[in-house]
């Protein structure tokens, strides 16, 4: 023991008994497992529900606690690579002769302060991240278990999309709302510097369809 530690022990305000330390140690180990496992499981899986045979079962065991305490995150900020932004474009159409209202989410001109803008941005990002095409590919359609997961995830995407449509319809009193997902593609340094383009060029905004995504194209 060093001199400092001796002094600290002599002047102790709050010494814990061995039993108390043992109980708290057990709780700490459990909690720290819940801190470590979610990002570990996230990194070991490429598709939700799959991944390391070690991480996934452990995750199943710890996830109730991790979910309740909001620890179930991957912490993959701007990773594995910084990617495009995903926006929403809504058109509110009216039957009473009013002009169609167009709104983009998020919109810096409307959504102030910046945190409010970011909430709307995350709403559109999360909707896009949950996107599942309406028609499953043949390999999924022929597998009942995979098809059930596909349909469940598609239903969740539709519920999210419909909630946004419903909100905009009620807010503006519109007869119809057309909602489109838009990818804002990033220009690489060469495109930006050599062709003298702006990161806001109209052709960097790509409207996404509801058809299945393919490996070889958008």
């Amino acid at each position: 023991m060093t001199q400092n530690q001796n002094k600290a022990t002599e002047n102790a305000d709050d010494r814990w008994s061995p039993t108390r330390r043992a109980i708290v140690s057990g709780l700490l180990i459990f909690h720290l497992t819940a801190v470590f496992l979610p990002p570990f499981a996230f990194q070991t899986s490429s598709v939700p529900g799959t991944g390391s045979p070690l991480a996934q079962p452990l995750m199943g065991w710890i996830s109730p606690y991790a979910n309740a305490t909001y620890l179930n995150h991957g912490y993959a900020f701007f990773a594995p690579d910084p990617g495009s932004s995903f926006l929403l474009r809504a058109s509110m159409e009216f039957d009473d002769g009013r002009e169609t209202i167009h709104r983009t989410m998020p919109d810096l001109q409307v959504d102030w302060p910046r945190l409010r803008y970011h909430r709307h941005f995350m709403l559109s990002e999360h909707l896009n991240a949950s996107f599942i095409p309406a028609v499953p590919p043949p390999e999924v359609a022929n597998n009942p278990a995979e098809l059930a997961v596909w349909q469940r995830r598609r239903a969740m995407y539709e519920a999210r999309r419909d909630a946004i449509v419903n909100h905009l319809q009620k807010k503006h009193g519109a007869a119809r709302v057309r909602l489109r997902r838009v990818e804002h593609r990033l220009l690489d340094p060469f495109e930006f510097s050599q062709s003298n383009r702006s990161i806001n060029d109209p052709d960097t905004f790509i409207e996404l369809s509801d058809t299945p995504r393919r490996e070889d194209g958008p």
Partner: peptide, 16 residues
Amino acid sequence: VIYLFGGVSKMRGEMW
């Protein structure tokens, strides 16, 4: 833990 997995996830990308 946050920084460790922040770094590890970036290491899986090409651009980093």
